[in-house]
Nucleic acid binder design. Structure first.
Length: 367
DNA sequence: GAAACGTGGTG
DNA sequence: TCACCAAGTTT
């Protein structure tokens, strides 16, 4: 009797990918892919850094803006750090922007541009295990085991790995290494991620549409939604503080720049009481940058990865006062172009509604 | 290994 | 309102 060969998991996943892959700004157009083209390593790198812990939809406009401003790694290396921080503002995890620039500076000195091996990529700032494997596989078509959050979800369900993360990581990696096909490792990596993003979703996975459901252990014996299991997380502390929006006669706002390291490193902010300490900060107007008729303008709430913050916002007219040491007056028309993290945009909006919105007539508007 | 590090979407 | 989570890296 004849036994028909059963296509293996990678084959079926790639067939599904060919028919169902997402078209994304950093991916090659289908016809270029069909003719054996490879995506530009610079674009792959840029997109992968932006996509770290960040949704595809959030990344798209930033990716387009960066590519327009800095079309290649040499252009990015030639850019001012400050301009990169401004362009990154709102995307979060700002150390990525600093590392992006540091990495560009290094790669711009390499005659052949980005290296293609995981080991070499791994040495560059901002590139860890995942990103090194992703660039190596996607841009250079090398058989790297790409393991991100999507892949962890797909693999733990496929093989019913009930060990909680992060303890299960080595086992997951070993499983992926066995699956990576020699022919199309880059497409395989992206297929796994697309499957995780569109079919094997965290909640309510669409198992009926899954190209590898026949191989899936958990679909038969359990609830896919329960995997991957995760170690218990610690409780998120709440912190409080006050923020001060000083407004000069011409509408300029008093700003300062945060230190390069730590939370919101290198980003701009209005003066505030301390609020990154473990203890609650002062929420009164007592520690304002200078004496003035500070008016309470309400409070804003913002949730960071490891703590929730409540900032009481105070507003005052500052006349034509000179900026205190370490501070500067930012012209009203240029506020939307400042490197302001979202929490600070909330603060300024609470004091001056509409102040941070980019306007057509605003020359400082970025993007 | 654990903690620090942003933000926006979703149920 | 809240908890979870998203193409993770660094210290």
């Amino acid at each position: 009797m004849t036994i028909l060969p059963v296509p293996n998991i990678a084959s079926r996943l790639l067939d599904w990918y060919d028919a169902n892959h997402r078209e994304l700004p950093w991916r090659l157009a289908p016809r270029d892919l069909a003719s054996g083209g490879r995506p530009d390593p610079y674009r792959v790198w840029l997109s992968e850094i932006m996509l770290q812990q960040t949704t595809v939809e959030a990344v798209k406009p930033y990716f387009r803006a960066f590519l327009e401003k800095w079309p290649d790694v040499k252009a990015l290396a030639a850019a001012e750090n400050e301009d990169i921080m401004k362009a990154w503002a709102g995307l979060g995890y700002y150390s990525r922007a600093r590392n992006l620039k540091a990495c560009a500076d290094i790669v711009a000195t390499f005659p052949s541009g980005f290296p293609g091996t995981e080991d070499e990529l791994r040495k560059l700032p901002g590139i860890g295990a995942y990103t090194a494997a992703a660039i190596s596989a996607i841009a250079f078509n090398r058989p790297a085991a790409v393991v991100d959050g999507n892949v962890e979800r797909v693999i733990t369900r496929l093989f019913e790995i009930r060990t909680p993360l992060p303890e299960a990581k080595p086992e997951i990696r070993a499983s992926v290494e066995k699956l990576v096909p020699a022919a199309r490792p880059g497409d395989f990596a992206q297929a796994m991620m697309d499957l995780g993003a569109t079919i094997c979703t965290p909640r309510r996975p669409r198992c009926m549409l899954c190209p590898i459901r026949e191989d899936c252990r958990v679909i038969l014996s359990g609830d896919p939604e329960l995997l991957p299991a995760r170690a218990e997380k610690t409780e998120k502390p709440r912190r409080r503080g006050a923020a001060f929006v000083a407004i000069r006669n011409d509408g300029a706002i008093l700003l300062r720049t945060r230190p390069d390291k730590g939370l919101l490193g290198g980003m701009s902010e209005v003066p505030t009481t301390g609020w990154t300490a473990r203890i609650d900060g002062d929420t009164s107007a007592k520690s304002a940058p200078f004496a003035a008729d500070w008016q309470h303008a309400g409070s804003i709430a913002h949730v960071f990865t490891h703590f929730a913050l409540e900032l009481h916002v105070y507003r005052a007219s500052a006349g034509d006062k000179a900026a205190p040491a370490g501070h500067r007056w930012s012209p009203a028309a240029g506020i939307s172009g400042e490197a302001l993290p979202t929490v600070m945009k909330k603060v300024i909006e609470a004091a001056i509604p509409g102040a941070t919105r980019a306007r057509r007539d605003n020359p400082a508007r970025h993007v």
